[in-house]
Design a protein around this nucleic acid. Structure first.
Length: 230
DNA sequence: GACCAGGCACATC
DNA sequence: GATGTGCATGGT
């Protein structure tokens, strides 16, 4: 369970105001992110699967290969052989595993929604989440990335960046599990897809930034921001 | 050459 | 349920 929700933090701040403050400062520093970096909702899904435990620059190489072959369309990707798909996504690593996972998602998409992501959108968030999590190879993070960034559903994505920053800020402990961490954000922020989109994207932007302080240590940024130091 | 990067499933205990 | 392991590339 969420052991920290509602608990008073130092300086009398509660979790809700702390989370909003962090968002406000990140937004002020990095500006609107308007994620995900993709040309279509389907490309978001492909990227979410390819980026599993992989550097994004490697994923970009695979995406470029797929675009070159005009394969970033559900039907086209469903119709190519696993051998060809594996060769094209090779730069993203774990290419045999990820080929199966992409095909699994496509099987689901065509079986249940006629190959159209748009047909998924009207369904309730939790219904969709259950369905997507049933696909072999799609875990919580990938499912939530698809739900938030491809289907615009209000769910907070927990990834390695979020974990590191939340740990740094004392919002979670090392033992916290995915659902616990997600509850910290979901129970203390308005359920708004645009807010969750920007918040997570800003966390990634900060984590990847080459700021002079240790990128993972948001505490330093918060401290300096309050003192007017950039 | 070692280490790391936006996971996940599966086997084992 | 917790822990260990396999899956693989490209950048530093």
């Amino acid at each position: 369970m969420n052991v920290l929700a509602g608990k008073k933090l130092r300086h009398g701040e509660n979790l809700r105001s702390k989370l909003l403050e962090v968002f406000s400062i990140l937004y002020k520093i990095y500006g609107p992110q308007s994620w995900w970096p993709a040309d279509s909702n389907f490309e978001v899904v492909v990227g979410a699967i390819l980026t599993q435990n992989t550097n994004w620059s490697n994923v970009e190489k695979a995406i470029v290969n797929l675009k070159r072959e005009n394969l970033l369309r559900p039907l086209a990707l469903r119709n190519i052989s696993t051998k060809k798909l594996a060769a094209l996504i090779r730069p993203s690593g774990y290419y045999n595993v990820k080929t199966k996972r992409l095909k699994n998602f496509l099987d689901f998409l065509f079986t249940r929604y006629g190959g159209k992501l748009a047909k998924m959108k009207p369904n309730a968030l939790l219904t969709l989440r259950r369905e997507i999590l049933d696909i072999n190879g799609i875990g919580r993070e990938t499912a939530d990335s698809i739900l938030l960034y491809a289907l615009e559903k209000p769910i907070f994505v927990i990834d390695a960046y979020t974990r590191r920053i939340a740990l740094c800020l004392g919002l979670i402990c090392k033992e916290s599990r995915y659902d616990d961490m997600q509850a910290i954000f979901m129970q203390n922020l308005p359920h708004n897809a645009r807010l969750f989109n920007e918040y997570h994207a800003l966390i990634v932007a900060h984590s990847k930034s080459a700021c002079r302080i240790k990128p993972d240590c948001l505490r330093c940024v918060l401290h300096n921001e309050k003192r007017g130091i950039r």
